[in-house]
């Protein structure tokens, strides 16, 4: 039994408001267990390079299976369970992700593919979607921890989620998908037959609290590739300017997903990646079927070099 006899742990109360203290206290790891990797591990740069190949004309932003991808050199990146932060991923599942990159004058596109026999794109209280993310340091010197950065060293993320793609493409809600025969006598302010749909929209929206509050993750509203910044585990912000593009396809037991972004934008929250630059990139993959979400994920072992030349 673990009890309060452990002198390493903080015993004293800290007065103040939990919300206010959260941000300040989270990155502090007190009495960290031996299994927690050291901070240096987060700064690892792997002896691997993703070499983006220049293409004339348009990139296959919406076609993960385009022949053009054959022009790019494939790099296989090993994935390990995330163990830097609780909750850790107890069981490894997806072992590797294959990466290719193409760019033109304005954009760079990455195609990730990995083995996952089931395409999980449903969202229900007990169902999670497959997902993957591509991460860039905002600055390479000093280098941020590839595990979501830190307060003074943030990172830029592109996140793809299969469930959001399903919602966007189908135009349906997960309510319709999971409970096709559901019936509710009435929804407040729902228009009746012949009534103007728009008339009560603001009142109706109040009953979808997250949507009314402007949460950008609402299925159907959330983009297929979401752009975010992170400045440690719980400091995540969805960007106001969503410039990224891309899409996923599940074929023969593998996901093929394109993540594309402009090389340079006016957005100060985008990691700059001018043509001809040497950069760094990191990867994460979630297996929805194994209930992966947030920190329960497979990650690359460190930063991977990136050449956009």
């Amino acid at each position: 039994m673990r009890r309060y006899g452990d002198s390493k742990r903080i015993r004293d109360s800290v007065a103040g408001y939990l919300l206010v203290t959260l941000a300040a206290l989270l990155p502090v790891r007190i009495g960290a267990a031996q299994q927690t990797p050291s901070p240096e591990e987060g700064l690892k740069v792997l002896p691997l390079t993703v070499q983006s190949v220049a293409v004339k004309g348009a990139l296959p932003l919406n076609d993960p299976l385009s022949k053009l991808w054959g022009q790019a050199k494939e790099v296989t990146v090993k994935l390990i369970p995330q163990t830097a932060q609780e909750p850790k991923l107890a069981k490894a599942s997806i072992g590797t992700v294959r990466v290719r990159a193409l760019h033109n004058d304005g954009w760079v596109a990455f195609r990730l593919d990995w083995a996952d026999p089931t395409a999980d794109n449903n969202l229900r209280s007990d169902k999670f979607g497959d997902a993957a993310a591509v991460e860039f340091p905002m600055k390479t010197n000093p280098l941020p921890d590839y595990r979501m950065g830190s307060e003074d060293k943030p990172v830029h993320l592109l996140l793809w989620r299969a469930d959001r793609q399903w919602a966007k493409q189908s135009g349906k809600t997960f309510l319709e998908r999971n409970y096709p025969r559901a019936h509710s006598d009435t929804y407040p302010f729902a228009p009746r037959a012949g009534e103007d749909k728009i008339a009560n929209q603001p009142e109706r929206d109040q009953y979808l609290a997250a949507q009314a509050a402007g949460n950008p993750i609402v299925p159907g509203i959330a983009p297929i590739i979401e752009e975010l910044n992170a400045a440690t585990w719980n400091q995540l912000s969805v960007q106001t300017h969503q410039d990224a593009r891309g899409i996923g396809v599940h074929r023969n037991g593998r996901w093929f997903v394109v993540f594309a972004r402009p090389l340079v934008t006016a957005d100060a929250n985008d990691a700059p990646l001018p043509s001809g630059s040497l950069g760094l990139v990191a990867f994460a993959v979630w297996d929805g079927g194994s209930e992966h979400a947030h920190a329960r994920k497979m990650v690359s072992e460190g930063w991977v070099r990136l050449k956009v030349k």
Binding site: L123, Q211, L236, A293, H294
Partner: peptide, 29 residues
Amino acid sequence: IDQRQCRGHRECMQACPYKKTFFNPVTGT
């Protein structure tokens, strides 16, 4: 639960022993 910030990870549903957080499949939160 801050409805602007929630990303629908459902850790709260797993953690609350009283099972008093709920998932909304329409908003994903």
